[in-house]
Design a protein around this nucleic acid. Structure first.
Lengths: 113, 113
DNA sequence: GAATATTATCGTATATTTGCGATATATATT
DNA sequence: AATATATATCGCAAATATACGATAATATTC
């Protein structure tokens, strides 16, 4: 594309779409589920349950980290990851705001007759 | 990439990530907001409020349509779009299932000490 | 200090997404 | 029938995302 137009939308539209895009790959959804289930995981444990190479999983972890949804701390040669609950709650709240606002506008009559 | 691995995840992870990916661009969030606000819109009205070319908006509409989130009916030379509320409700429900399941696992103690 | 184990990053290939102008298509209008 | 209007689609360019192997970086263990 010539230029990226994403910046020309509203800040909350950008925030919500960034959150959604981060959850827009099943691997990242699966990683969050695994982390929530086990509370914390070293990278290798996540790689084990994923049908992807270690380097690919590492990239997905990086994206989740960039979005602030998870955090990783070094523990020896291992990396221990866990969910950033505050961020997840905040983004979820924003996302629910959007869907609630949309669904509240649902009319009684059908459209596009 | 060599091959697409998305199919190797769970069906509900794929469904949720497809929904999320569809909302993963601010233009598509903005389109849904506009449609919800006005109940129904002809394509041109959406183009007016969007910082994008007509052909680009048409593509975003197509993606929302492919996901089933909106539907368009021809009305003379115009296309009248509106939200598919049942689908939006269903996907929202699935998405909330995920985030609720995640957030219910939030522990009392902090992780990764 | 050498070997091992774990993970992040780099480089690369390919796929997908984004964006636009031009064009095709379909319906009104004159 | 010719013209105007509205929208979808095509073709293209550029950006981004996905995936992997190889390698670098780091810490542990022998």
């Amino acid at each position: 594309m010539a230029i990226n137009k994403k910046g020309e939308f509203l800040a909350d539209e950008i925030l919500i779409s960034d959150f959604a895009r981060t959850l827009g790959h099943p691997a990242r959804v699966a990683i969050l589920k695994t982390l929530a289930e086990r509370n914390e995981c070293i990278c290798g444990e996540i790689v084990e349950v994923m049908p992807l190479a270690q380097s690919t999983v590492s990239q997905h972890l990086k994206e989740l980290k960039n979005m602030g949804l998870i955090q990783g701390t070094l523990n020896g040669p291992k990396s221990c990851y866990c969910i950033n609950w505050e961020k997840l709650e905040e983004y979820t709240r924003q996302f629910n705001n959007l869907t609630n606002e949309l669904l509240n506008k649902k009319p009684l009559a059908l459209c596009c007759k």
